[in-house]
């Protein structure tokens, strides 16, 4: 399982792996927002929590279909499925690699990008924490969606349609945490709820994904 995790990180970082794609997408979206909304600083600060969370969420979507799609195409998913490694741990290793190469960089870069939207330092910290706790849920739910759409030609769009509604709770609590922090209110409750979503996903989704993989590989 650790070997698969390390291999996927290695593949993501090497040429053509798509590492940094999500980060650059996030950067571009956040830079475009002030151009679209105008230079009013108070208006920017008002929309910043929602925009930053939405940008991170959409950036996460970009590389979801690669999680299993590439391995399915070149046949290595078949070989992994026939190896002693359970498909549940294949799923965990791949979702963890996706988080480390997508979610973690997004969470660390988000406070810096928040400056562009006139986000206060406290709210920037809340954004970083909420993304650190929430992006694992995004990767886990997204990887689960990827197992469901496995084998469908150009299933990327279907995957987005399937996964976005499931991202709604994480988005609500994530943006709420940042909004509370920007108003100087406590934001521990939304953070705990995001953590609950991530922990719930890690407890349930490996089994659902293992079953989906087994059906789709048949």
């Amino acid at each position: 399982m650790i070997q698969l995790f390390m291999r996927d990180i290695g593949l993501a970082v090497r040429s053509g792996g798509g590492f940094g794609l999500a980060l650059i997408f996030f950067l571009i979206v956040v830079v475009l927002i002030p151009f679209a909304l105008g230079p009013d600083q108070s208006a920017l600060a008002l929309v910043a929590p929602g925009v930053l969370w939405l940008g991170a969420l959409l950036a996460c979507l970009l590389s979801l279909d690669r999680i299993f799609g590439l391995d399915y195409e070149d046949g290595s998913l078949d070989l992994l499925a026939s190896s002693p490694l359970p498909l549940e741990s294949v799923y965990i290793a791949k979702a963890a690699a996706h988080w480390l190469t997508t979610g973690l960089p997004l969470a660390l870069a988000a406070p810096l990008l928040g400056v562009l939207l006139n986000l206060s330092f406290d709210a920037g910290m809340a954004l970083c924490f909420s993304l650190l706790l929430g992006t694992p849920a995004l990767s886990l739910i997204g990887a689960f969606g990827a197992t469901l759409t496995l084998g469908i030609k150009r299933g990327g769009l279907l995957l987005s349609l399937l996964v976005l509604p499931l991202y709604v709770p994480t988005l609500i609590f994530g943006a709420q945490a940042v909004r509370s922090a920007s108003l100087g209110q406590p934001f521990d409750v939304p953070l705990v709820l995001i953590l609950a979503i991530s922990l719930g996903a890690v407890a349930i989704l490996p089994f659902a994904s293992g079953a989906a993989l087994r059906i789709n590989l048949r």
Partner: peptide, 29 residues
């Protein structure tokens, strides 16, 4: 445990020949 070789070889183009083999050797122990 069964070693299965399908029509597709399941190789990763970005990895070297040695790295490909090493990965499978570690997965199977």
């Amino acid at each position: 445990t069964v070693a299965y070789a399908a029509h597709a070889d399941g190789l990763k183009g970005q990895l070297s020949v040695l790295e490909n083999l090493k990965f499978w050797s570690e997965v199977y122990g």
